[in-house]
Design a protein around this nucleic acid. Structure first.
Length: 168
DNA sequence: AGCAAGATCGGT
DNA sequence: CCGATCTTGCTG
């Protein structure tokens, strides 16, 4: 099966995020290969988006978001959950898609635990990696949008943007 | 150097 | 609703 390539990721995050729904996420661990379908994502778009970590500018943590699309941004939240993000868009244009749900794993912290995703994936390429990549979907589906979760601190208008995408 | 908050989750 | 658990970025 072919992997999604560079051109898929260098588009604007609001294009990439919904297009990720239905795609197959493949993760190889030392003793298994897990294949799961992406069912829910959220878009974080640029320094102006106050819900986006890049709204604080370049920091050691957000540095990877300024990279061209196609690399992984992971970070630890509440001291125990790894959040998996795919960087999108052009170089120096910080954007990322948070993977919130996959087939059989609801919640961003739940799915990373199941897929054994941790800090070692920070900066890894999605189209040039031996242990994690994406494959095209095989079925049609319908997409619905909702506001993003857990970003009350961002205030309006960001809190109301319908930038969470999920399969209906 | 110290501190408050956090793109969460599971149990009560 | 509440605690777990620790990194991060900001303040001083």
């Amino acid at each position: 099966m072919q992997k999604l390539n560079r051109s898929f990721f260098i588009r604007d995050v609001l294009k990439v995020a919904p297009n990720l729904l239905g795609k197959i996420l493949v993760v190889k661990t030392s003793d298994s290969v897990i294949r799961t379908m992406i069912t829910e994502v959220e878009a974080y778009r640029g320094e102006e988006d106050l819900a986006c970590h890049a709204s604080k500018g370049r920091t050691p943590r957000t540095e990877i978001m300024y990279h061209e699309g196609g690399v992984i941004y992971v970070y630890l939240i509440y001291g125990m959950y790894w959040m998996l993000n795919f960087v999108t868009g052009m170089d120096q244009n910080p954007q990322a898609v948070l993977i919130r749900g996959t087939d059989g794993a609801n919640g961003p912290g739940v799915l990373t635990r199941k897929l054994k995703i941790d800090g070692s994936f920070y900066g890894e390429s999605l189209f040039n990696s031996e242990r994690i990549w994406l494959e095209p979907e095989t079925t049609d589906h319908t997409i619905i949008t909702r506001p993003r979760i857990g970003i009350d601190y961002a205030g309006e208008p960001w809190i109301s943007k319908p930038w969470r995408f999920l399969l209906s």
